[in-house]
Simulated assay, not measured.
Amino acid sequence: MKKALHTKSVNGCNLMTSLSVANEAGFKGVEIVASKLDDYLDQGFTAEDLSQALKEKNLTALSINDICHIESPRPEALEKMLEQAKRYSQVAEIIGCKYIQLVPLVELNDKSWEEILDITSSNVKKICDIGAEHGVSFQLEAVAWSPFRSLKRGMALIEKVGKDNLGMVVDTWHFWAAGETTPEEVAKMDPTLIYNIHFCDGKKGEADTVWDETKLRGYYFGEADIPLKEYSDAIKASGYKNWWSVELVSSKHWEMDAIEVAKRLSDDLGQYM
């Protein structure tokens, strides 16, 4: 098992600086924030340039994060998703990145579960077909405040889509904060369907309030409320033996020394792997 830095953890840095920070802090992999990638490409740099930068810093790109609103029923939203899927899949193929993250949100909150599943699976099938053309797979994140807020519901979508390039990311904060997925369920997962780990601490938001991740997840390991050892033991018990990414979504830490933050995260993550 190897350590990766989700580059959102150092969100104050551009893409190239994020890679330098990851390398300096001892990480061997990175998850690339899509907005940073877009900014990089929009300035005329290429996927080949990024591939060379990753090689020079001895880093593996694990995923591109993310394509959002995958549940949207709006035709213009689907068109945007498919454009992103094509762009990111082309980049992923060139840089040797296996996964692109998919994020369901809340556009269908007024629909029944069956309608939500039908609409979202239709979108995701189209996305997966684009990725398959480039040898790319997709990791689904079960967002805590979305209809897909649990492992059970995420797996229902995977089954409904029926594509072999769709799996789950185990995000300790999302699973724990939603309150519908236990470490015991994680331990029973098929490890071939665990595409990545987002390991982080945090707190829950109050009921009937808008949750601000940048505050609720603004903690180093052991500073907040998630039973991290239970989740760590569960991940290992599943048989998963690949990358673990540390994801610190924290407006406070984004204003701190990025290298110091990343080194602390690397050291702390190593205690749980």
Rank of each mutant, 00 (worst) to 15 (best):
A178Q: 00
A178F: 07
T181R: 10
T181Y: 08
T182S: 15
T182V: 06
P183G: 14
E184S: 12
E184R: 08
E184L: 03
E185K: 07
E185A: 09
V186E: 00
A187W: 08
A187K: 05
K188F: 01
D190N: 15
P191G: 04
P191D: 00
N196V: 03
N196G: 06
H198A: 10
H198I: 03
F199T: 05
D201S: 02
G202P: 13
K203S: 13
K203N: 08
K203R: 15
K203F: 09
K203H: 12
G205I: 00
G205W: 09
A207P: 13
A207H: 13
T209S: 11
V210R: 03
W211S: 11
W211F: 10
W211Y: 13
D212E: 06
D212L: 04
E213V: 05
E213Q: 01
T214Y: 02
T214F: 05
L216N: 09
L216F: 07
R217C: 14
R217V: 02
R217P: 08
R217I: 11
G218W: 10
G218I: 01
Y220L: 03
Y220R: 04
Y220P: 06
G222Q: 00
E223H: 09
E223Q: 09
E223T: 12
A224E: 03
A224G: 03
A224D: 03
I226W: 06
E230L: 14
E230T: 12
Y231A: 08
Y231H: 04
Y231S: 05
S232P: 08
S232L: 02
S232A: 15
S232R: 06
S238P: 01
G239W: 08
Y240W: 02
N242K: 14
W243P: 11
W244D: 03
W244M: 11
W244A: 06
V246A: 15
S250T: 14
S250K: 14
S251L: 04
K252R: 15
W254P: 04
E255H: 06
M256C: 05
M256P: 00
A258F: 13
A258N: 12
E260Q: 15
V261W: 04
V261F: 03
V261E: 07
V261K: 07
A262E: 10
R264F: 01
S266L: 05
S266I: 04
D267M: 10
D267Q: 02
D267K: 08
D268N: 00
D268R: 00
